[in-house]
Nucleic acid binder design. Sequence first.
DNA 1: ACATTTGTTAACATATCGTTTATACTTATT
DNA 2: AATAAGTATAAACGATATGTTAACAAATGT
Lengths: 237, 237
Amino acid sequence: MNETKTILVVDDEERIRRLIRMYLERDEFIVEEAENGEIALEMALKKDYDVILLDVMMPVMDGLEMCEYLREEKNTPVIMLTAKGEESNRVQGFEVGVDDYIVKPFSPREVVLRVKAVLRRTHNLNVGNNNQASNLIVFPHLTIDLDAYRVTAKNKEINLTPKEYELLVFLSQFPDKVFKREDLLKEVWEYEFFGDLRTVDTHVKRLREKLTNVSKEAAQMIVTVWGVGYKLEVDDD
Amino acid sequence: MNETKTILVVDDEERIRRLIRMYLERDEFIVEEAENGEIALEMALKKDYDVILLDVMMPVMDGLEMCEYLREEKNTPVIMLTAKGEESNRVQGFEVGVDDYIVKPFSPREVVLRVKAVLRRTHNLNVGNNNQASNLIVFPHLTIDLDAYRVTAKNKEINLTPKEYELLVFLSQFPDKVFKREDLLKEVWEYEFFGDLRTVDTHVKRLREKLTNVSKEAAQMIVTVWGVGYKLEVDDD
DNA sequence: ACATTTGTTAACATATCGTTTATACTTATT
DNA sequence: AATAAGTATAAACGATATGTTAACAAATGT
């Protein structure tokens, strides 16, 4: 049921490839790399990847071109990495058969989520039945619907801002694990962002506030570990 | 499987280099030293180190500059040593391709942990999935969950302060080994700290107290070795 | 132009830390 | 058995470190 998926990451910057690989592998994806479209195309034709993460801007063969060639042979899902301001590529991208977009600089978490989302979509299609593999994270006092971007407690919806939501989802993915503020900034925020550590506090505070309004129990899941950071704790009562 | 790794330590202060070397060598790393960026660059181009520990502030060629030159040729992982308040360097550091940061004054333990973390990310990645070996230290009467920063005895959680926790974890990593108070101050506290030896006693006392409240057996693991120091003893009953 | 979200900052509250004090206990030595 | 040195416990203290909160400024999206 839970096979490991193989992702091909194509970007000319090795730093970016390593960054993406790091986060994908933590979620037990197998990652292969290519540094330009030409090499990537060769690899993608030889082997069936589950998803291809593809930078638009590359020296030898850019993402659009590569995707175009690829589509002549295969329907491997493609997620395009594009920099801000390159929005124009979006239109061309969809014409060429791109499945989703991620805008640089992205947050590492976002990549993983998008990859999973694309996998869900494609897999579900192939299987044919709309068996709605439930993309829910369910805790005793809190439910997160990843598809609907909806957080509920006591059957009431909790309106969170994007950052609040991402922070909560991230913590939820690793229950009980404590994250230092630095780590949270690295994971949830964009990879170029080096902001004040207190920023995390503020978002935690706002998140707790909104949760408290609906369910104190839910809010109490977010625990401060003094001198270290925060974690999402699941009660076993 | 467990090849020895070679680390290059670059800092203009010999004291710091020696300190870091000492702790790395205890974990069976091979350590080489350089006292400025120029020399380090030469060495790093000639030989493939597994990790480079690099001070930002140095006279001849600073860390950022060195890293920039290095990156033109190689992708050796770099951990940057920065003093407090030099946060601005972080941004530049990232652009230059730094893998991680350690803020001075660090505790020796931290350096070793970071080096291992970076090695895991880079080398081990090729091996495939890091199957999240659960980070537990388990003794007959005591369990430490390193991820959750949680200490339990008799299924009850024991709330420790950061120093108490670090002290316990440190002792736990070397069961039955006796540490002098001096050693404990050097290891668990920051390297700049030269405090009263009695401070250790106080922390041991507080730790024992909290452990006793939950489990006398757990508390009895921390044994005083008369005239020497403390150790964590594991019963084989 | 407006409302919302986000990041920073500073004031405030709280927890922890290192030290000191004092007294009682333990161990080693004679 | 007496003594000295090392240790345990407890309490108290100010100094630091850390966390929370609120208010503001900047960025963002509509």
